[in-house]
Each structure stands twice: as C-alpha cells, then as structure tokens.
Design a binder for these strands. Structure first.
Lengths: 143, 143
DNA sequence: ATGCACCTTATAGTTACTATAAGGTCAAGC
DNA sequence: GCTTGACCTTATAGTAACTATAAGGTGCAT
C-alpha cells in the first residue's frame, strides 16, 4: 500500500503546488507540521499528499481556505455525533449543488456556442453571459 | 421590457457586491465606464447588471479575472470567425467539465456522509478528502 | 436651506498566494 | 573526505482581488 515519503519538493511536483504554498498551508494549520530529517527537511507521507490535493482542488473550485478548513474538520472528526455534524454537511451540500447548477449552465452554453458556430461559420447570438446571470429577479434585495 | 437605470448602490444590492468592487471591475475593464449624472454619479443599465452577475458567479466558481475577461470577450465578439474562437471555447469547456466532475464527486461524498450518519448515529468512515484527492497522478490547477 | 442617505476619489489593509534573498543540507562523484 | 549542485530552510516583500476607511460632494425630502 502507499506509504511513501515525500520532501516538500516532491509534494510540490505531485500536486502542481509551489513549495512556498505548501509551507503556507502548514503555517495556516491546514497541513500538520510533519516530522523532519536531522537537518530540518520536512518529511511528508501519502496522507499529507491526499490532504494537499484536496485543499488544492477545493481552492480551484472556489472554496475559501476557511470553508476547506471546515470540510477537513468534518473529515477529521471521525467519531462526532450526527446532530453535531449534519447541519454543517447540509449547508455545504446545498452550496455545492448551487455551484453545480451554475457550472452546468455555463457548460451548456459553451457547448451550444461551439455547436452553433460549427453550423453557421460565425457566432450569432452568444449567450454566455445570460447563462450565468439568469434569474435577475430572484436575487435577494436587502430592505 | 428591462431597461431600468441603476446607481452603483442599486447594482450593489441587486448583485450582493460591494460598491467598491463594482468600481474596481470598471477600473479593470470588465465593466464599461458608464455615463454619469451632471453631478458625476454612475448610471448603469440592465446589460451592465447582467454582466456584473456573470462576473460575480464566475468568480464564485473559482475562475480568475483573466479567464472571465476571456469569456466576456467571446461573448462580446458576436461576429468573430469560428476558427478564431472554437479553440478557446473548447479549452474553457474541458476545464468546466473537469470542475463539474470534481464538484460532483464532492457532492456525492457529502451526501453519502450525511446518509451514513443518519443510519449509524456517528461518522464512521468519512471520505471527503478521498473524494477530491482521487487519481493522484492527474492534477492540473490552471485558471 | 438643511438634513441625511448615497455618491465621489484616494489610500491603506486583508487573503491567499508568489517571488526573492541569504544561507544550510545531502547524495553523488572525485 | 571534500566539493558541487540541486534542493532545503526561514524571512521579507510583492501581487491579485478584493475590503475598509477617510474626506468630501450630490440629490432629494422635508
């Protein structure tokens, strides 16, 4: 099974992440402070790499460091009670679904654009903007 | 039909965006410099609001300002030739699909977590991290 | 004509990195 | 065992995309 060891540079290559960024995540408490060699080099393992990949993908999907921290905490507390955790999961879930909906709308419009272009030789009615700015009315307007 | 006028504050309320941020987008060239009242107040319209909503949702989904600028340019050049545009669309499309895949994996895991929790009263094997850190080889985090 | 909410520009601060400096570590080769 | 060079260390400063705050002008309703 995977039980490899990684220097920060190997973690960097495996995750397309700058080494400074990895140390930044450690400093922010998203990654643990790993053991060191006698000379002070960090030694990471597979679990650290998985966690780093999770953080990077979460960031890429637009989640803030704080949201990612919350998701990681859910993941870490493997024995929490449900009442304690379910509300938080539900919140993240509805947010994730909203993002899925909007990303899907953008996908469809890009696809439509590409198809209509192949058929007509030129863009006629590009509605990328409308794809994501739909339902102007239902945006809540504060009192 | 929609041909309303908006001050920056009304745009702000309609889009949940700070007024400073709207002016920042104007300064960055993502929004046009709108006409002004004699006293210097900005006057936006429905098209400006749509564009702003697009920008905001794009940012929320993790796209950089530069990527959003590229998408808006696609949208603006309504008479571009296909050869010119299709490659760019394809690129964005494959990126969007990768995001959809990863978001979907996260959704499924959150859902599974919530269900398994209801059944067992406590989290047993939370795999949120694994949901997004799958296939360690193929990472790409470019905007 | 006087509030008061809302607008203006401008500058400084925050988040999440990113670049650079100045120096220490380690395995490979001589 | 010593050097070389790639890679590591901490620390500070800079960037992108906002966000907060200051100091002052606008516009409409009393």
């Amino acid at each position: 099974m995977g039980n490899r060891q990684y220097t920060v540079g190997q973690m960097s290559k495996a995750s397309q992440t700058k080494t400074v960024t990895i140390r930044y995540y450690e400093q922010q408490g998203l990654l643990r402070s790993p053991p060191r060699t006698p000379g002070g080099y960090r030694i990471f393992n597979d679990a650290d790499l998985d966690r780093l990949l999770f953080i990077r993908r979460g960031r890429h999907l637009g989640f803030s460091i704080e949201t990612i921290r919350a998701l990681l905490e859910l993941s870490d507390q493997s024995d929490s009670s449900c009442a304690d955790v379910n509300a938080r999961v539900a919140e993240h879930l509805s947010d994730v679904r909203k993002r899925l909906e909007q990303l899907h709308a953008l996908e469809e419009e890009l696809q439509r654009l590409s198809l209509s272009c192949q058929e007509e030789g030129a863009i006629r009615d590009c509605q990328i903007v409308e794809a994501l700015s739909l339902n102007r009315e239902s945006v809540s307007i504060a009192p």
